[in-house]
Amino acid sequence: MLLILLGVLILHLIILILLIVSTAASAWSVGVDRATDLWYNCKTSSVGYHCSQASNEDWIQAVQALMILSVLFCFFSLVAFLYQLFRLVKGGRFFFTAIFQILASVFVMCGAIIYTVMSPDDPSITQFGYAYVLAWVAFPLCLISGLIYIVLRKKE
């Protein structure tokens, strides 16, 4: 049982790291001389490297909010898991942790879908970067982790 709990905890930490990196990294969309993330648009020119704030459009703000919510809910589910690990009665299930983790999964999925649909970049010039891919990798891992928490029971 200890190995299962340790494995679930490590999976949860990996998901949290993936979500933090995908939210903060500057590579949601990359091109030959530019990189775009949720916060800045950066371009390379003959003068140097110049970054400006991301657009004030509603869709990018929605993606920013959803990614931040996914990180927060994943962190809250980690705290809830550790709390329930020591306070939950024998035989109890980690429902509270599972709900937070599944909500984090839904938030990251919605953010990535909105970014996919609304991204205005020309596909011949730019392509999706590693932060975008990390968000899509974190989605199923987060969902699987939430489902594991639903099935998991506390044993002595």
Results as ranks from 00 to 15, higher is better:
residue 33 D to M: 11
residue 114 I to W: 11
residue 48 G to H: 09
residue 4 I to E: 06
residue 61 Q to T: 10
residue 31 G to S: 15
residue 142 C to R: 03
residue 124 S to C: 01
residue 52 S to I: 14
residue 117 V to E: 11
residue 96 F to Y: 04
residue 154 K to E: 07
residue 72 L to P: 00
residue 102 I to M: 11
residue 149 Y to W: 15
residue 129 G to L: 05
residue 147 L to K: 00
residue 55 S to R: 09
residue 26 S to N: 15
residue 20 I to Q: 03
residue 90 K to Q: 09
residue 106 V to S: 11
residue 141 L to A: 10
residue 85 L to V: 01
residue 87 R to V: 11
residue 70 S to N: 13
residue 72 L to E: 03
residue 85 L to R: 06
residue 12 H to W: 05
residue 133 V to E: 02
residue 76 F to E: 03
residue 73 F to M: 11
residue 10 I to M: 09
residue 110 C to E: 13
residue 89 V to T: 05
residue 5 L to Q: 08
residue 15 I to V: 15
residue 151 V to G: 02
residue 112 A to E: 05
residue 34 R to V: 12
residue 78 L to A: 15
residue 43 K to I: 01
residue 111 G to K: 04
residue 25 A to I: 08
residue 117 V to Y: 08
residue 20 I to M: 11
residue 66 L to Q: 08
residue 23 T to M: 14
residue 63 V to G: 07
residue 155 K to I: 09
residue 102 I to A: 02
residue 1 M to E: 09
residue 91 G to H: 01
residue 96 F to S: 06
residue 51 C to R: 05
residue 1 M to W: 03
residue 1 M to D: 09
residue 31 G to L: 14
residue 21 V to R: 05
residue 15 I to F: 00
residue 22 S to G: 13
residue 70 S to W: 07
residue 111 G to W: 02
residue 78 L to R: 00
residue 82 L to P: 01
residue 137 V to S: 06
residue 93 R to V: 06
residue 74 C to M: 13
residue 145 S to W: 02
residue 50 H to S: 12
residue 137 V to M: 06
residue 79 V to L: 15
residue 82 L to A: 05
residue 90 K to I: 08
residue 42 C to A: 06
residue 148 I to H: 01
residue 107 F to D: 13
residue 52 S to P: 00
residue 147 L to Y: 10
residue 144 I to C: 12
residue 14 I to V: 15
residue 92 G to S: 06
residue 113 I to P: 07
residue 58 D to I: 08
residue 6 L to H: 00
residue 16 L to D: 04
residue 96 F to C: 06
residue 52 S to N: 13
residue 15 I to Y: 00
residue 87 R to N: 13
residue 2 L to K: 12
residue 96 F to T: 13
residue 126 T to G: 01
residue 54 A to Q: 13
residue 33 D to S: 14
residue 134 L to T: 04
residue 141 L to M: 14
residue 104 A to P: 11
residue 6 L to S: 12
residue 11 L to T: 10
residue 13 L to E: 06
residue 94 F to G: 03
residue 133 V to M: 04
residue 2 L to D: 12
residue 31 G to N: 12
residue 37 D to C: 08
residue 23 T to R: 13
residue 114 I to T: 14
residue 27 A to S: 15
residue 25 A to D: 15
residue 111 G to C: 07
residue 136 W to C: 03
residue 131 A to I: 08
residue 20 I to R: 03
residue 114 I to P: 06
residue 117 V to S: 05
residue 62 A to S: 15
residue 53 Q to G: 11
residue 90 K to L: 04
residue 87 R to H: 10
residue 76 F to R: 00
residue 154 K to W: 06
residue 54 A to Y: 02
residue 146 G to T: 06
residue 138 A to W: 11
residue 90 K to A: 01
residue 66 L to W: 05
residue 103 L to S: 10
residue 15 I to W: 01
residue 28 W to M: 12
